[in-house]
Every structure is written in structure tokens, then in C-alpha cells.
Write a protein that binds this DNA or RNA. Structure first.
Lengths: 209, 209
DNA sequence: GGAGATGTTGACTGACCAGTCAATCTATTC
DNA sequence: GAATAGATTGACTGGTCAGTCAACATCTCC
């Protein structure tokens, strides 16, 4: 049957991808060998090249798979009719939950792609920018409807928001922040509370007394 | 004379370090060859190894030189008697100005060390953590004196603050944000305004209406 | 059951590059 | 000006590893 064959085939492909996540997370993309991935997956060296054209393509695949899910989520959230705070909260939630669900994969995506300005970060700059732009759009709308101050550049605000979240993940990745269930939830809340608190028009305190 | 000799010696050392900054920034630490550094500096290959034990040590030196200046600055700022907002503003200022003054060096530090969880980030974890801790201390003091809400974990707040700044630099590094004088200044202000706005006790707006 | 396609294997190769080292050059000192 | 120490050179080496490939295995379908 075709389905069985297809299933079996993609099983091994998936096996390799999952093994790659573990290996990349443990040793880093540059430090690991393709044979490490094959060993971790329990398959022969050559099979990696049967499913992927190069070591790079393995990482590309991992990144794009997950990043596109995130982009879709952000688009969906934005399309809904809810206050900015909730929209940003949903995005923060999604990212933190992604980490909670698969810390290795998020580590790889952040360390090897999102922040790798000279390698994969450049390759996937378009995808990465897309995320920032979508968040900026949310900020712009909030400014237009008056819930966010409009003297703050939306692009910069989006970067600050995204950067704050990514730094939380970085804290967990480096083992600098406690990574239990409660802290995951508090982190979501903190980012939204902090960033929205500073951007909302309801804020009173200002630079001068 | 001894001074001349010493001067000449350290001249070449400096030459190599400066060349390394350019090369690391342009090609990335892993992608570049030691010969690229030597070529850029206009010295022979072997001379790099006369001054540095390994390629790694070159990056270590660059990182530590700059990072220690930053740690000192944060300590000085913290020791002074001024409102939190100004303290955090001074730190944001220092980091942004560091980028303005030498974007290549900051790019290298951030991309190759601060965010490299599997290589130099691990090696220098102590130094990196020190910076986060110092910022967290500032937040804790602000909470103690009542200017910051104390229901927010200081460690997390410090990460959010530092992450927001680093993401601004990342935006400039990737060419995703405008990098002119005015935007540098606005970025400092934005980060402080946003983060402090969300943390200060004077904030009014809250989750529920 | 056999032909063709697809999956799987792992030894091998060719390129690359960090680090070594012996030779040469330059300054310093007496 | 000879001796010593340090600076500078670049050809060479040894190890590493991404990617290839030819052989073998296992499906699918008639």
C-alpha cells in the first residue's frame, strides 16, 4: 500500500529530525557531526542524505516547520477581536508554551537561527522579520484605536516585546532562571504586564515629576 | 628602549584584535579562518599564535575586555544615588552607545558570546550572569524603596529589561531597525519608558477594567 | 515471482583549517 | 659588534568531517 510506504518513509525522516533537535540542542549545530545525528536516530550515516540535501537543510526544515506555526498563530490572534493586552498575552503564551512543550527545539531555533546573524539568521531573515512585522502591526492598530501611546515607534516596541520574551527563554536555556510550571506562567504575565504597562495610555508616571 | 619595544609589541596585538573584530563581525567566528584575521591585520599567520594561544582566546579577549567595562559601569551607576529610572536609563545608554561607537564589536559579543548557548556563552556564563544579577539588584532595591511593584520577580524583570535592549541591537545588526543617531536616542528612551512604565508603582491601568 | 522503485548501509574521499615549528629578522644591552 | 631575547614569517602537518557512491535490502504492483 502507498500509505504504509509513505508512512514508513516519513517515520525515518521524522526520526532524523527529532534526533537532530536533540543533537543540535546538546552540542550546537557547528560542533556536532552529521554522524552524531545518524547515531542518535539509530540510522546509517547515508540515510540523512537520502532525506536531506545537506546538514544545513536539516536545520532549515526544523526552523521553518516551527516558525510557520508561530506566524500562523500570530496572524490568527491578530485577526480576532480582542484587546491588545490579550493579543500580546496570547503570543507570549504561545512562545512560552512552545518552549515548555519542546525546550530543545526552541533552543535550537533561537540559538542557531533567530540570533545567528552570520549564518541561518541571514538565510531566514524574511521569515524572522515577518514575525516582528506582525507584532508591529498589532501595536500600530492599538495606537490607532488609542489604547497604546503613539509616540513610540511600533517597530521598536515590537522588538522590545519580542526581545523580552526571547530573553526569558534564553534565561531558561542557560539555566539562569527557574524553569518550573509556575515560573512559565509568571513569565508570560510579567512580559505582558511590563511591556503593556509601559505602552498603554492609561499609564500615569512619567519622566519628570 | 623598553617602552618602545613594549609599545610596538602591543601595537601588533591590538592590530590583530581589531582585525579579528572586523572579520568575526563580517563572517562569524566559525565561518572565518585564522588566516583571514592575519590578512585583515596585515601580519603573518603565525603572529596570531604568538600573541594568542588559540583562535578561541582571541574572542575571549575581545569579549572580556568590553564586558568588564560594562560590568564596571553598571556597578558605578548602581552605587550612585539616583532614581531607578535614571539608573536603568544610564545602563541602556551605555549599551546603546557601545553599539554606536563600535557596532562590529558589539555584534561579535552578542552574536558569538552572549547568545551562543553551546560555545562561548557557556564559557563566560559567570560574567554574563554577573550583568543580569547586577541589574536584578537594582530592581530589588527599587522594590524595597517602593518605586517598583514587588510582585514581579527581579530576576525576570532584569532579563526582560536586558533582553529588550539586546533585541534593539539585534534589530540594528540585522538591518531591521533604522540605525541613525536619532533612533539610537529614541531606543534608549523607549526601553526605559516601556520597562519602567510597566514596573513602576505609579502605573494605573491593569488587567481588568 | 520478478522488475522496478525506493529505502538503507557505511566505507571512502577530498577539502579544509587550526595549530606547530624552524628559520629569519630586529631590537636591546654590554 | 657579538650575544641574547623577543618579534615575525609562512610552509607544513595531522585530524576532522561533509558529502558521495556503489552495493545491498525491502517494498509495490502486475
Amino acid at each position: 500500500m502507498n500509505a504504509t510506504r509513505a508512512k514508513k518513509s516519513s517515520d525515518k525522516r521524522r526520526l532524523i529530525l527529532d534526533a537532530a533537535v536533540k543533537v543540535f540542542a546538546r552540542q550546537g549545530f557547528h560542533a556536532c557531526r552529521v554522524s552524531d545525528i545518524a547515531d542518535e536516530a539509530g540510522v546509517a550515516y547515508g540515510l540523512v542524505y537520502h532525506y536531506f540535501a545537506s546538514k544545513d537543510k536539516v536545520l532549515d526544515t526544523l526552523f521553518l516547520e516551527r516558525w510557520n506555526v508561530m506566524l500562523d498563530t500570530i496572524r490568527e490572534v491578530d485577526a480576532q477581536d480582542m484587546p491588545v493586552r490579550e493579543k500580546l498575552g496570547a503570543i507570549a503564551s504561545f512562545i512560552v508554551d512552545s518552549y515548555r512543550h519542546d525546550p530543545d527545539l526552541m533552543k535550537v531555533i533561537i540559538v542557531e537561527v533567530t540570533r545567528a546573524a552570520n549564518s541561518f539568521g541571514q538565510t531566514h531573515l524574511g521569515q524572522i522579520r515577518e514575525a516582528y512585522d506582525l507584532i508591529a502591526q498589532i501595536v500600530i492598530k492599538a495606537q490607532a484605536e488609542g489604547s497604546f501611546k503613539d509616540d513610540i515607534d511600533a517597530g521598536f516596541a515590537a522588538m522590545a516585546f519580542y526581545g523580552a520574551i526571547e530573553q526569558m527563554l534564553t534565561g531558561w536555556i542557560f539555566g539562569l532562571l527557574p524553569a518550573d510550571e509556575e515560573h512559565f506562567e509568571r513569565a508570560k504575565w510579567l512580559v505582558v504586564e511590563t511591556v503593556c504597562g509601559g505602552l498603554e495610555t492609561t499609564t500615569v508616571g512619567n519622566t519628570l515629576p
